[in-house]
Nucleic acid binder design. Structure first.
Length: 306
DNA sequence: CGCTTTTGACCGGCGC
DNA sequence: GCGCCGGTCAAAAGCG
């Protein structure tokens, strides 16, 4: 029997004067999960945390530190005032006026390669292409690429891309040096949301998936409606803020991906799988919807704040 | 048809 | 300056 393990969290970034670990917790439930389980792992006994040394240093180019964030956090859909929105808007301004401009240009450049004689129109198009490239270059050089706050966690899983409640679009894949496993790059599909994530398998332990998030979502999860009860207000409880939304329609697929691993939840005294727990959870639908994976790992009484 | 994935090209940063 | 590497772009292909 394999456990679904969230093995490690790391985050050590600072946004302005506030600790990044505090702000990132609102978007990434695993942060809270780690906080909880680090202190409670001995008593819970269902989560195994690996030490920092178990992660190849080459995997991360940012400091590694166990989060010490508090669990009072802002609501999910709060734009990060320091970076995300400003960066997005500035990039949007530099985008070509029409989405087709680049493809038109490239098509014309191919034509230029084939034909020795250039028409005036073609030259203009070629100039457009060069201008576009210049703009792109200027965009990249002017604003020295500002790194979004990032954190990573490791999950023991059969599948690389773990369902986390958000929709992602893959925009790249690269071979990782000294690793047989490629690294995939994903971007949040939501408009104006600049969150990215990298997914790669640990070459030291192929069963471990390393997911690195960059940035913060500025919108709620699109895959599951989030109840707007009072708990979703700023400074609210863990119950409302930390969730790993799991669409019920995807649950069976997800369970397949996760080998339908039963979770041994000591507080319930028996091993039951995710689906059964959701169906049998007496706490009601709002709790079901709100906790997602988190509720599968953290006992409900721990999720409630006095 | 719209969205996602694939994949080669390209770019910037960095070390030598 | 050069080469390597990580990250991103974007056209083409794939898919429902």
């Amino acid at each position: 029997m394999e456990k679904r393990e969230v093995i490690k969290m790391e985050d050590k970034y600072t946004i302005g004067s506030s600790s990044f670990s505090e702000s990132i917790s609102s978007s990434y439930p695993f942060s809270a999960m780690f906080d909880f389980c680090e202190g409670e792992k001995s008593s819970l006994g269902f989560m195994e945390l690996l030490g920092v040394q178990d992660i190849s240093p080459s995997l991360f180019d940012f400091p590694v530190q166990t989060t010490t964030s508090t669990l009072v956090v802002p609501p999910l859909a709060v734009p990060n005032p320091t970076s995300t929105t400003t960066k997005e808007s500035s990039e949007a301004l530099n985008q070509p006026a029409t989405p087709n401009s680049s493809s038109i240009s490239s098509a014309s450049s191919e034509a230029l390669n084939e034909e020795q004689t250039k028409t005036v129109d073609q030259e203009e198009e070629h100039d457009d292409q060069q201008n576009t490239k210049k703009q792109l270059k200027a965009k990249r050089t002017n604003q020295k690429r500002q790194r979004e706050p990032r954190f990573a966690f490791m999950t023991k899983s059969e599948v690389d891309h773990l369902e986390d409640g958000y929709r992602w679009r893959k925009y790249g894949q690269k071979a990782v040096k000294n690793s047989p496993f490629p690294r995939s790059y994903y971007r949040c599909t939501s408009a104006s949301c600049n969150v990215k994530k990298r997914v790669e398998r640990s070459f030291s332990d192929p069963s471990v998936v390393v997911t690195t998030y960059e940035g913060q979502h500025i919108h709620p999860s699109p895959l599951i409606p989030r109840p707007t009860h009072a708990g979703a207000q700023p400074g609210s409880t863990i119950t409302s803020c930390f969730s790993m939304p799991m669409p019920r329609s995807n649950l069976s697929h997800y369970q397949q991906q996760q080998q339908q691993v039963p979770l041994n939840l000591g507080y319930q005294g028996s091993s039951i799988n995710l689906h059964e727990r959701r169906l049998c959870n007496p706490a009601g639908s709002s709790l079901l919807a709100d906790h997602g994976l988190l509720q599968d790992i953290i006992p409900s009484h721990m999720l409630k704040q006095e």
